[in-house]
Design a protein around this nucleic acid. Structure first.
Lengths: 136, 136
DNA sequence: TTGTATCGTTTGACAAGTCAACGATTGATA
DNA sequence: TATCAATCGTTGACTTGTCAAACGATACAA
C-alpha cells in the first residue's frame, strides 16, 4: 500500500463528495450543509451556534454565514439568549418545516445514492466512513 | 430510507473528504489535488490540460490555477504544443520527481487512512466509492 | 472594582472548487 | 477561400470551507 494508492483512494472520496453534494442540491433545492443545519436545529427545537458547531464539526465562520443566508430566506429566526448575551439562539420557522417536509416527500431525492448502492452497501459505506471520521 | 438518513450519509462523506484532504496535506506537504495532478502528469510523461481534466474530473479553471502554482514552485514546465497552438503541454521537473519520491518514502504518510481501516476495509471502501462515482 | 481570562460570535483574508464569457486556434463547409 | 463552429485554455465572479484577529459578554480573582 504505497502513497500513490492512498492518494487515489482519497481523491475518490473527494470526487464522491463533490458529486454527491451537487446532486443533493440539484434534487432537493437545499445545499447539503444547509439542509443538515436546518435538521440539526429543528431536532433541538432551539439551539446555539456552538451546538451546531459541535454536531456538524464545521467552522464557526461558516455557521454564521449559512445562518445569515437561512435567515434571509426566512428559514430560521435568531435572537440573543436573554440569560447569556454572548449566545445566539436559532430556531427554524414554519416555512422551513413546510419546505423540508415538501422535499422529504419528493421521490426524486431517492435517485441519489440509492440508485448506485444497495441498502447493504449503504450500510457498509456508512460504517466505514464512521470509522474513518472517528480517527481524527 | 428517508431523506434525512441520506443527508446524514452524504454529510459523512463531506466530513471524510475534509479530514482526509487536510491530513494528507499536513503529512505530505502536498495538497491532495496537486499531488494527484503531478502523478497524473508524471505517468503520462507529457500531457495536455484536457487529459488532466478527463483523468481527474476537475474543472478547467482549477487546472489552470493549480498548474500556475506548481510552475511557480518549480514542479512543472509548460509549453505550447507546436502542432496545435491551442494546447499546453505539461511535464514534471526533476525537482518534482525528487520531492514526490521523498514523501513516498516517508512513513508518516501511512498513518492516514491505514490507521483507521484495515486493508480489507480500504478495499471495500474503494469499491463502494467507485460504484458511487460511476453513477453520475 | 478592576483586571484578566474565557466564551460565543463575527469579520476579513485566503484556498479551492464551480460556471460562464472570452480569446486564440483550428477544422469544416458552402 | 471566406466564414462559421468547435476546441483549448484563461479569466472573473461566485460559493463554501479554513484560520486568525477582533469584539462584546461574562466569570472570577486579587
Amino acid at each position: 500500500m504505497d502513497l500513490r494508492e492512498i492518494s487515489r483512494l482519497l481523491y475518490q472520496i473527494k470526487l464522491a463528495e463533490q458529486n454527491v453534494a451537487s446532486s443533493f442540491e440539484r434534487e432537493t433545492g437545499f445545499s447539503l450543509t444547509r439542509y443538515e443545519m436546518l435538521q440539526v436545529v429543528k431536532e433541538r427545537d432551539v439551539c446555539s451556534q456552538r451546538e451546531i458547531k459541535e454536531e456538524m464539526r464545521i467552522d464557526n465562520a461558516a455557521i454564521t454565514r449559512h445562518l445569515k443566508i437561512l435567515e434571509e430566506k426566512g428559514y430560521v429566526v435568531r435572537e440573543r439568549n436573554a440569560e447569556n448575551h454572548r449566545e445566539m439562539f436559532v430556531r427554524v420557522t414554519e416555512k422551513a418545516e413546510q419546505d423540508l417536509g415538501h422535499c422529504e416527500r419528493d421521490e426524486q431525492a431517492n435517485h441519489l445514492v440509492l440508485q448506485a448502492l444497495s441498502d447493504e452497501e449503504i450500510h457498509q459505506l456508512s460504517g466505514l466512513l464512521q470509522k474513518l471520521n472517528s480517527h481524527t
